[in-house]
C-alpha cells in the first residue's frame, strides 16, 4: 500500500457526540437530588435492664413499662396528645408546659451548670395517639440541647388533656 505524503485520517466524532448527548440526556432526566435527610442516632436499651438495676435496691419490681425507675440523672418527660394527635401539654418532672418554647426554656433551666448538671439522659413517655411529627419536634429540642441519650416509653391510653 502506498501512502500519500499528507494523509489525513478523519475520525467521525459526530456519532460519538450523538451518543454522548443521549447519555447526557438520560442522566439529566434521571437526576433528582435526594432531599437531605438527617438522623438522630440513639442507643435504645430495652426497659428491663434498667428495672433490674433498680431491683438491686428494691426487690419488688414492677412491670417494665408502667413506671420508669426514678433516677436523679434522668429527665422524665411526658407528652400528652389532643384527639387529633397534636401535642397537648408537656410534663417535665411535675412541671406542666405548653409548646416548644416553654419546653426548651425549662430544659435549659434543668441543664443549667449552676444546678450541677444532674441530668444526662431523658425518658420520653408519649401518648399512644401522638403523631410522630410532634414527637420529632420534642426530640429536636432535646437534641438541640445536646441531650442525646433518649429512651421511649408509652403513656397509658386515655390519659389525655
Amino acid at each position: 500500500m502506498k501512502k500519500s505524503k499528507h494523509q489525513e485520517v478523519d475520525i467521525p466524532v459526530t456519532p460519538m457526540l450523538d451518543m454522548a448527548f443521549q447519555l447526557l440526556t438520560f442522566f439529566i432526566l434521571t437526576y433528582h437530588p435526594a432531599p437531605s435527610e438527617g438522623q438522630f442516632g440513639m442507643n435504645l436499651l430495652p426497659a428491663s435492664p434498667a428495672i433490674k438495676m433498680d431491683a438491686a435496691k428494691a426487690p419488688d419490681t414492677k412491670t417494665p413499662n408502667d413506671s420508669v425507675p426514678a433516677s436523679l440523672r434522668t429527665i422524665t418527660t411526658q407528652l400528652f396528645a389532643s384527639p387529633d394527635g397534636k401535642l397537648g401539654k408537656v410534663m417535665i418532672e411535675e412541671n406542666e408546659l405548653q409548646g416548644m418554647d416553654q419546653l426548651r426554656a425549662k430544659l435549659k433551666e434543668f441543664l443549667d451548670p449552676a444546678q450541677g448538671d444532674l441530668f444526662e439522659q431523658a425518658v420520653i413517655q408519649a401518648d399512644p395517639n401522638l403523631k410522630y411529627e410532634e414527637l420529632m419536634k420534642v426530640i429536636d429540642v432535646f437534641s438541640g440541647l445536646k441531650i442525646n441519650k433518649i429512651s421511649f416509653a408509652e403513656l397509658e391510653a386515655g390519659v389525655s388533656l
Partner: peptide, 15 residues
C-alpha cells in the same frame, strides 16, 4: 429491642 437491636437511628428531613 426485644429481638436484640440496640442501635437506632430516627430519620428526619433537615429542611
Amino acid at each position: 429491642q426485644s429481638e436484640g437491636f440496640r442501635k437506632f437511628s430516627l430519620k428526619a428531613m433537615n429542611a
